[in-house]
Nucleic acid binder design. Structure first.
Lengths: 201, 201
DNA sequence: TGTACATCAGTGAACGCGCGTTCACTGATGTAC
DNA sequence: TGTACATCAGTGAACGCGCGTTCACTGATGTAC
């Protein structure tokens, strides 16, 4: 936590810098404390070294900060997975790289990952997010279908097998983040999931 | 919530009945509100129709109530899964029945299920629980091994494939509880997971 | 059988805490003249 | 160039709230004599 005396007031016209600091502090708190409810408005203010009411210049409420952090986390996550398949032609390879990127993001930012798929209320209220997730799922289905089309997968239903793949990746990510366990190599588990469920020949 | 005037004080020697009421109320609150932190000591007291300090006759702290609820949930869960394979000889059938029971418990008591595998701090502190989970996992490995031994599975590693199976079941349970989605039939997804990852012939 | 008394189940008021949020404000910074 | 002033970034005190927990207590119930 910064000492409040160390912070310099932003210059005129640069007030929106505080907005970025708020989001960074909230993200840091989320990742470090590991629970959304400990990302309090006052903790964010403390972290930045600012008085609590200063935040209201940039966000309406505590909730809107958390919502913004989650939206950003989803964008980061989706971008990381998409980016992993850049310049990769072979669909099986794309599928594997996506899986690796998925699990790596969850390993590196477990709390940010968890909050994406783990918040019942938020998900129910956010239409935008629902559609992002749907788009991400459709991308997975397309990838599995491409493996089928190229003769590398004997899956009889890309969509239904994608549900199983998604579940397995999500479960693995969550369990690895939450449970002490003598986990086998993550790439091995990933291969078992993809080979088995996606029926890669 | 009961009206506090409706509650009759327990007779002498029956004071421990309140203990049961506390646990029931905490479980109900957990399941209904869907988050552990809203299971407050005062909410429990309100639910029962009792003054908040009355709880201290039966539990040291709010935390010990929640811990007890979780321990109980784990026992219920494990018992439900075990019981599903009673009188079933064929290992593949046992594996399937276990999977169905696993997902049914998660569907019926999503919050109680989620709290079992989803609480980083609690899990880190509870040795007993860790061992219960380990026992449950070992039972799964033994089941997969039995499928291999009976020639019904071509898995090359019961333990590693069990990790993948566990991950897939957990992920499916969590996603179904948390996400609005046009989920395919749960038995179909379960079959895809077991057939694919456990290499059932 | 009656009564004094110990025990037990549970209460009501109070505590300090951290929270989100509101409010009237301050003081530095840049700009118009 | 100097100065008055508007604007902007941020503050400090206060609010009401629900929380976990402590404390001294009350009053019904069963028991010993």
């Amino acid at each position: 936590m910064k000492d409040s005396s160390s912070r310099q007031r932003n210059k005129r016209g640069e007030g929106s810098k505080l907005r970025e600091e708020i989001l960074q502090a909230a993200t840091k708190l989320l990742e470090e404390t590991g629970s959304e409810e400990s990302v309090t408005l006052r903790a964010i203010a403390r972290e930045i070294g600012v008085a609590a009411p200063s935040i209201y210049g940039h966000f309406d409420s505590r909730e809107s900060i958390v919502d913004t952090v989650i939206d950003q986390a989803f964008e980061d996550f989706f971008a990381a997975v998409l980016q992993s398949t850049q310049n990769v032609g072979d669909p099986v390879e794309r599928l594997r790289k996506s899986g690796v990127a998925y699990l790596e993001f969850a390993d590196e930012f477990p709390q940010r990952y968890a909050i994406l798929f783990d918040r019942r209320e938020h998900i129910e209220h956010s239409r935008t997010e629902f559609h992002s997730r749907e788009a991400a799922f459709n991308a997975l289905v397309a990838l599995v279908q491409a493996c089928i089309d190229s003769g590398q997968s004997s899956s009889d239903d890309a969509s239904k097998d994608s549900v199983a793949i998604w579940a397995a990746l999500h479960g693995l990510a969550m369990l690895r983040a939450n449970m002490k366990f003598d986990w086998p190599d993550i790439n091995d588990t990933l291969d078992r999931i993809l080979n088995g469920v996606a029926h890669i020949n």
